[in-house]
Every structure is written in structure tokens, then in C-alpha cells.
């Protein structure tokens, strides 16, 4: 058994897993606040990455300025999607809302391919990349950066929901919309804010992935990998999303280890999360931390 290789993969898994966690977190944010299952989460990630890439390469904006500009853009973009497309659908059946986000993801995916082409583009060097040696492991600094950013965002999110006024308003809305409204919370604004924040957080994750791997339409796979993560963690638990993301990231890389050492099936790591997804749906559909939906007539 190749311990060195396994360790290396597990570190990769941790890094990718925290990124899944961040994306899953922004997915759960929208689901919790607005009851919308967002199939276009991966595309938000991709849009963020492409916008930042355009600013940095086409307009030669320095990174410290380009990143905030991307965030401002994504903030406005998130609000725009919510107001223009999802607001008219409030009160419609769940199916319609799901369908709209699926269609949105198709539109964004194709539009981005149209604008930027299908070839991956390297991201401009933001950090000088080198590898640090910890013990016997070689870890690239971008990975460390990615880990730090992800953890920082998770902490930021925790602070946002525990302390800030907006976060509390969102939690209240998620708990009961009518009661929240009667307490003076504007549910409309909360919905728009949830999308705006989710788009921003996704964009940060998108830029981080882009810095590590370059920008390509393949980035939107993060939006799909979110599903195993959130189902594992529980659809309406932000903490669960983070845990689920990390577990899925580790599992994926562990599957790759098993695959390359023993099974030799090839690309097992890509489908392994989906097998896990089916198994979880069969035995524990509400996930590790999700609230069980009890219905009363």
C-alpha cells in the first residue's frame, strides 16, 4: 500500500472538499431562505470566475481591485436573477421553480461557451506558486491559499448568521415567512439578499478554483457535486453542507486511490459521489444534520 500517495490524495480531498463545502453552503443558503433548489449554482461559480478572468486579463485590473469588482458584479447579478426570474414564480409549484433553475443553468452554460469559447484559459498568476514541504508531503501554496480562503468564508458565514442583523433576518425568514414579515422583515429583500450573497460566495469559490486549475466550463461540475454534499449533510443545514462537502471531497479522492491501486476501472472518483448519493437517499434521506420533514394534516 502506497501511504505517501494516499496521504497526498487525502490532502487534495480536504482542499477540494472545503471548496465543495463553500459551494454547498451557498446552495443551502438559497434553499433555506427562499425554498428554491438552485441547479444553476455551478454556473454562478463559473460566471464569477469568468468575470474576474476578464477583468484581470482583458482590462489588466490588478487582483486587489478586480476581486472586489467581481464581488460587486455578482452581488448585483444575484439580485437581478432573483428579481427578474424567480420573483414571478413565488407560490408556483416546486417543480416549476426547479425547472426554471435547470433552464437557467442551461442558458448560462451555453452563453458562457458562446462568449468565452470552449477552451480552458489559464488564470493570471495571482500568487507566486511554489510548494511547501510538510513532513514528507509536497503541498502547493495555492492549495494552502484555497484552504485558508474556504475556512475564512465558512467562519464569515457563521458570523453572518449568528450575529449580523441580516443573517438573523434570513434565519427568521427561513423559519417562518409570515412571522418574519409580521416582525418587520422584508421577505422580498431577504430573498434578493440570499441570492446576492450566495452568488458572491460562489464567485469567490470560482475564483479560487480558477487560480488553481484555470477557467473552463468544467468548473460548473462543482454545482452538480454540491448535491451529494448537501444530501449527505442535510438539505437545510449550513454546517451540514460544510461537513458533507469535506466528506465528499475526501471520499472522491479515496475512491481514486482505491481505483488506481486496486480496481483500475478509471474515473471512479467522478461517479463515486453519486453512488453515495443514492445510498444516502435510501437509508437516511434527510442527511446527517437535516431536519426531518414531519407533515401534519
Amino acid at each position: 500500500m502506497n501511504t505517501q500517495f494516499l496521504l497526498q490524495l487525502l490532502v487534495n480531498g480536504l482542499v477540494v472538499g472545503t471548496l465543495y463545502g463553500v459551494v454547498a453552503m451557498s446552495f443551502v443558503l438559497i434553499y433555506k431562505a427562499t425554498q428554491v433548489v438552485n441547479f444553476a449554482q455551478g454556473e454562478l461559480l463559473l460566471i464569477g470566475a469568468w468575470v474576474c478572468w476578464t477583468l484581470l486579463t482583458k482590462y489588466q485590473v490588478p487582483f486587489w481591485l478586480g476581486m472586489p469588482m467581481t464581488l460587486v458584479f455578482m452581488f448585483a447579478f444575484g439580485i437581478l436573477i432573483q428579481v427578474v426570474i424567480l420573483r414571478p414564480l413565488v407560490g408556483e409549484p416546486v417543480i416549476s421553480v426547479i425547472m426554471v433553475t435547470i433552464a437557467l443553468s442551461a442558458v448560462f452554460q451555453a452563453a458562457l461557451k458562446w462568449i468565452y469559447g470552449v477552451n480552458p484559459q489559464p488564470f493570471p498568476r495571482v500568487f507566486t506558486s511554489q510548494s511547501v514541504t510538510i513532513g514528507s508531503l509536497q503541498i502547493q501554496t495555492v492549495y494552502v491559499m484555497s484552504l485558508v480562503v474556504s475556512v475564512a468564508m465558512m467562519i464569515g458565514m457563521a458570523w453572518f448568521f449568528k450575529v449580523s442583523k441580516w443573517g438573523l433576518a434570513m434565519r427568521a425568514t427561513a423559519f417562518n415567512q409570515q412571522v418574519a414579515q409580521s416582525l418587520g422583515i422584508s421577505v422580498k429583500t431577504v430573498f434578493a439578499m440570499a441570492w446576492a450573497i450566495s452568488a458572491m460566495v460562489s464567485a469567490v469559490a470560482g475564483v479560487v478554483v480558477a487560480v488553481v486549475n484555470g477557467v473552463s466550463s468544467g468548473l460548473s461540475i462543482y454545482g452538480i457535486k454540491v448535491f451529494p454534499a448537501v444530501i449527505l449533510g442535510g438539505l437545510d443545514s449550513i454546517g451540514g453542507a460544510v461537513v458533507g462537502g469535506i466528506i465528499i471531497g475526501l471520499l472522491e479522492n479515496f475512491a481514486q486511490f482505491i481505483d488506481s491501486e486496486y480496481l483500475h476501472w478509471g474515473n471512479l472518483y467522478e461517479v463515486a459521489p453519486f453512488y453515495v448519493l443514492i445510498i444516502i437517499l435510501m437509508i437516511k434521506p434527510y442527511g446527517l444534520f437535516g431536519t426531518k420533514d414531519i407533515e401534519r394534516v
Partner: peptide
């Protein structure tokens, strides 16, 4: 469809999403 039989629409969507990836992966190998 079995896991989704006792679940609601949303979970079925996700189960079929998994089915799509698992089946396509099966075809390719």
C-alpha cells in the same frame, strides 16, 4: 426510482441526477 418512492419531488430530482451520471458512466465502461 425506489429511493424516491418514499420521498418527495425534490429528492427524486436529485436521485435521477445521480442516475444520469451513474448510467452514463456505466455505458462508457
Amino acid at each position: 426510482g425506489l429511493p424516491a418512492a418514499r420521498l418527495k419531488g425534490l429528492y427524486l430530482v436529485i436521485a435521477t441526477l445521480a442516475a444520469q451520471y451513474i448510467l452514463l458512466d456505466f455505458f462508457s465502461r
